[in-house]
């Protein structure tokens, strides 16, 4: 074996390792530490074992939040993916329209999350918000502060407004990579608009679409800022997602033990999703 070994590389990796240790490993271990102990403040800790984990996993509150998360992710995927594809299909392929569309699409993505929340919080208010006033004027009984259904609508519309662009941009990238010859061949073969989509555009978008779906799923599963700003998890617990619940437990109630156990479970779920994400992606490459 003549494979060259170069030990210098380790020195280059070291700073990164140190950084990761401080930013991830050490906080994570602190959380693990909290999750197996009980505290009453004053830096007094008692061994609790797996008690917190059992409590969390058997609590209705956790599963309810989890359920809300899954429903939320399901709904926004069902809206954002088809809508994103539809917009991408109708965007111009050449000419000045391309850059105009791309800039318009990129705009929502550039706005910080809490600002998006604030915008919609104000936008939807029935006293001063444009949306709230308008629906009220139309005689629709819309009030996201009191009505759980309205709160959900608001949060979903906000997410669609914020994130559909991402799906659009990814799909558009997939679409423009299709050579003209494919469309010409389809015209010659007498293919309908639907057949062109089904057999040319969709297969070519499959790869970017997978990325888009996984990204949107993970992101929506971790959603926190926007519903927190708009609804604060209410009315009642109707928009309390896992992340909001976690913060409530940890900071609102100062139940550090259960909160730590909960973050670990949450962390494992996300880790599992990342793994799925990674496997799907690499399988794709292997196929190619």
């Amino acid at each position: 074996m003549n494979k060259p070994w170069n030990n210098k590389a380790w020195f280059l990796v070291l700073p990164v390792l140190a950084l990761v240790a401080f930013s991830a490993a050490i906080p994570l271990m602190t959380v693990v530490n909290y999750s197996v102990q009980d505290t009453f403040g004053g830096n007094q800790f008692f061994w609790a074992g797996t008690e917190w984990f059992e409590e969390i996993l058997s609590s209705d509150r956790f599963w309810a939040a989890m359920g809300r998360n899954l429903v939320f992710s399901g709904i926004i995927l069902a809206i954002e993916v088809p809508l994103g594809i539809l917009i991408a299909l109708n965007m111009p392929r050449r000419g000045w329209g391309v850059s105009v569309c791309l800039v318009l699409m990129a705009l929502p993505l550039l706005i910080p999350w809490n600002v998006v929340g604030t915008i919609w919080q104000v936008f939807g208010r029935i006293d001063i918000g444009l949306l709230g006033r308008a629906t009220w004027a139309l005689g629709i009984d819309y009030n996201y502060v009191n009505d759980p259904f309205d709160a959900w609508i608001t949060v979903i519309v906000m997410d669609v407004w914020h994130w559909t662009s991402l799906v659009v941009l990814l799909c558009y990238a997939g679409l423009v990579s299709i050579p003209d010859a494919y469309y010409q061949a389809a015209r010659i073969d007498g293919a309908s608009r639907w057949a062109v989509f089904r057999y040319i555009q969709l297969p070519k978008m499959k790869r970017v679409l997978t990325i888009a779906i996984l990204l949107r799923f993970m992101d929506s599963f971790m959603i926190y800022t926007e519903p927190f700003v708009v609804t604060g998890g209410g009315p009642g617990n109707s928009t309390t997602f896992l992340s909001i619940d976690l913060v409530k437990t940890a900071i609102g109630q100062f139940d550090l033990g259960p909160a730590a156990a909960m973050s670990l479970i949450y962390f494992l779920i996300i880790l599992l999703l990342s793994w799925v994400f990674y496997t799907v992606m690499t399988n794709y490459d292997a196929e190619k």
């Binding site: 010859a181 494919y182 061949a185 010659i188 073969d189 293919a191 057949a195 057999y199 297969p203």
Partner: peptide
């Protein structure tokens, strides 16, 4: 065409059937 154009997701049979089915 210069670069081969086939419908990747279809079988060879379906590729050939495509222009007929469209009509």
């Amino acid at each position: 065409f210069q670069f081969p154009v086939v419908y990747d997701t279809m079988t060879v049979y379906d590729n050939l059937a495509f222009p007929l089915r469209n009509r």
